[in-house]
Design a binder for these strands. Structure first.
Length: 117
DNA sequence: TTAATGACAATCG
DNA sequence: CCGATTGCCATTA
């Protein structure tokens, strides 16, 4: 049968569903994609992200409320800058109102309908 | 094919 | 609260 591997294109689609000013987590994306334990793999997917900046990978943070990574150690700064620009306040590498900014209402059904180029 | 790596997460001390 | 450890999954060499 088909492999149980996570769907990269699906992950990107789900991430595109995250509205501006909101954030999600690697874990939430992995879970929405049908692989709840593949949070780390999602991180790897973001790292390679060939669809940037079309895909808002800067809206993906740690489940802990911390920013996480973004390219190099210098990239985290840019990530915080982008989030602040969208209205998401960041303090000391950590989201201030993480619980309220957290987005988890993914529509996998809709995401599966269209495919990424 | 096996070993090593990394933009994660949960647990432990 | 913070640092260290272990587990997980997919990619890369």
């Amino acid at each position: 049968m088909g492999k149980d591997k996570i769907r990269i294109d699906l992950v990107y689609k789900l991430l595109k569903q995250v509205p501006k000013g909101r954030v999600t987590t690697y874990k939430a994306l992995a879970r929405a994609a049908g692989h709840p334990a593949a949070a780390r793999a999602v991180g790897g997917i973001m790292r390679r992200n060939p669809y940037a900046p079309a895909v808002p990978c800067h809206r993906v943070v740690y489940s802990d409320g911390r920013l996480g990574g973004f390219g190099g150690s210098r990239g985290v700064e840019a990530k915080a800058e982008l989030l602040e620009k969208e209205g998401v306040k960041v303090k000391d590498g950590r989201l201030v109102d993480f619980a309220n900014r957290y987005f988890d209402a993914f529509s996998v059904h809709i995401a599966e309908k269209s495919r990424l180029p």
